[in-house]
């Protein structure tokens, strides 16, 4: 991983430069030339049209923007998009692409009515999927702790905990059935953005 940009040590104030970034979003490789100020969240939402991840605070204080980067949940609002260079990003849109069945976590959120307005929901679900994968969904207390980075102002927390407990069991079964599938590389197709 190296940068084609060079460090300019003089010339303050600098003119805004663009930075070349390559990343994979929901399995699709993308190349972009980005304003380094742009957050991963704003890249996803305003540039790629992936508006599932939401802006609730823009400062890492609410969790509505949660996506996975290289399989780990992060706050995309506090991630400069240029930092996603060389990384795999998964958003709610990639969790169960249109036409495919819902992820067990999504189904569990429906079954337990773990949402109301739906605004924080994509972030909750991305966090919840990671919470299970991390092994942090072994008890209601642990789920509450490890889901506390996702605020729900409607107050659906009871349903969220129930949904995660439910989905964790189903995900354990699914993981065993499909082990190895996630290692498949996406088709090497570049889309300029």
């Amino acid at each position: 991983m190296s940068s084609s940009a060079t460090l300019r040590t003089g010339g303050h104030p600098p003119t805004p430069g663009r930075v070349a970034v390559e990343l994979v979003v929901n399995g699709v490789p993308l190349a972009a030339s980005l304003d380094p100020r742009r957050s991963l969240l704003d890249l996803l939402r305003e540039q790629l049209g992936l508006t599932g991840a939401k802006k609730g605070c823009d400062h890492g204080q609410c969790g509505a923007c949660t996506v996975h980067v290289d399989g780990r949940r992060v706050a995309s609002c506090l991630t400069p998009a240029v930092q996603a260079h060389g990384r795999q990003v998964l958003t709610i849109e990639g969790l169960s692409p249109a036409g495919s069945p819902l992820h067990p976590m999504q189904q569990a959120f429906i079954d337990h009515d773990a949402l109301q307005c739906g605004y924080c929901t994509p972030g909750q679900i991305m966090a919840a999927v990671a919470c299970v994968a991390e092994g942090h969904a072994t008890s209601p207390e642990q789920i509450r702790e490890y889901m506390s980075g996702n605020l729900c102002r409607c107050g659906a927390y009871v349903g969220i905990v129930a949904a995660i407990e439910d989905a964790a069991m189903k995900m354990a079964a699914t993981t065993m059935a499909t082990a190895g599938r996630s290692a498949e590389m996406p088709e090497a197709r570049h889309a300029a953005v």
Binding site: R45, E46, Q47, G49, T51, G52, A53, K54, K55, T91, I92, E93, L95, S96, A98, L102, Q106, Q107, F109, I110, D111, D113, L115, G118, Y119, T121, P122, I125
Partner: peptide, 21 residues
Amino acid sequence: LARVDAHDKVRGAVAFAADDA
């Protein structure tokens, strides 16, 4: 009855005002 808009909401497919891109 399950929440009728839940299927779209869990997929992030509901368009809120700021989701206009």
